[in-house]
């Protein structure tokens, strides 16, 4: 597993609140990395620095280094629209647009200038297939995306993210609003996607992290306490606090 993302001594402040403290971490390419830790420890914050969604929160300040494939994200040479095209994101609540299934998937490609109907048709089909949703919706692509189930909506959001051809996929508790069967489907989907994409997921469900991920990062109040192969972290943690957390003694 080649490292793709390098984070070095990253500090993030929300106005005066110090939300990430000296975070140093590497994230491997074409693998699944899980962020775990108690509520408010900064998992979502770190995830949002990877596609610079924090830029929109007024008063956010960043120090240190965060680079993808050697390119510093907060440097002048990176324009944020291109970055977000390369780093897709799936949110906790499924958030399809109130448009048809087709137009939801085509939204991203259209943003980036693809007009040809034939090309769009092709993208819609391959994206929905990648998100394991094609067979369920192929006969009613014109239906409103709000009319399908929550689990299907979330897979639609994954397909929508894939449609702009990203390298990295960020998922912030993407299954926490779903029922167990939909969750399972998405876990299986993520397993398939990791051959083609680098996936970073936040989860509150330790079993999920253990089941799905290759690497796990444990956070506590804005610090990375420990990160390593998932198997090693869960079977043989080096830090006492990690052990306490995964054995359910706090959090």
């Amino acid at each position: 597993m080649q490292p793709l993302i390098h984070i070095n001594k990253l500090n993030l402040f929300y106005t005066s609140f110090h939300a990430l403290k000296d975070v140093t971490l590497t994230i491997p390419e074409k693998a699944i990395t899980a962020f775990i830790g108690p509520s408010g420890c900064g998992k979502s914050t770190l995830l949002r620095t990877l596609n610079r969604m924090n830029d929109m929160i007024p008063g956010t300040r960043i120090e240190g280094s965060i680079a993808i494939g050697g390119t510093e994200l907060y440097s002048n040479e990176v324009d944020v629209e291109t970055l977000r095209k390369k780093v897709g994101m799936v949110f906790q609540q499924p958030n399809p647009f109130p448009k048809s299934i087709y137009d939801n998937i085509a939204y991203g490609p259209r943003l980036h200038g693809i007009r040809s109907k034939q090309k769009l048709d092709e993208i819609v089909e391959t994206s929905l297939k990648s998100a394991a949703l094609w067979d369920e919706v192929k006969d009613h692509l014109k239906r409103s995306a709000l009319s399908i189930s929550g689990g299907q909506q979330q897979r639609l959001c994954i397909a929508r993210a894939l449609a702009v051809n990203p390298d990295i996929l960020l998922m912030d508790e993407a299954t926490s609003a779903l029922d167990p069967i939909s969750t399972l489907k998405i876990e299986e989907l993520v397993q398939e996607l990791k051959d083609r994409y680098t996936i970073v997921m936040v989860t509150h469900n330790m079993h999920q992290a253990a089941r799905v991920s290759n690497q796990t990062v444990f956070f506590l109040s804005g610090e990375v306490i420990e990160y390593s192969d998932t198997e090693k972290l869960f079977s043989n943690p080096t830090d006492q606090r990690t052990e306490d957390y995964i054995s359910g003694r706090f959090g």
Binding site: N51, M53, M56, E81, T82, L83, R84, K85, G88, M89, F91, Q93, N95, P96, F97, Y107, G108, R110, L111, H112, C157, R160, A161, V164
Partner: peptide
């Protein structure tokens, strides 16, 4: 809802694209 703007920005939309689409 804010989540709808987030969805658009996260796909690489500019401000005006998000507003207009």
């Amino acid at each position: 809802p804010k989540s709808r703007r987030d969805a658009s920005f996260a796909l690489g939309a500019t401000k005006w694209q998000t507003v207009s689409r």
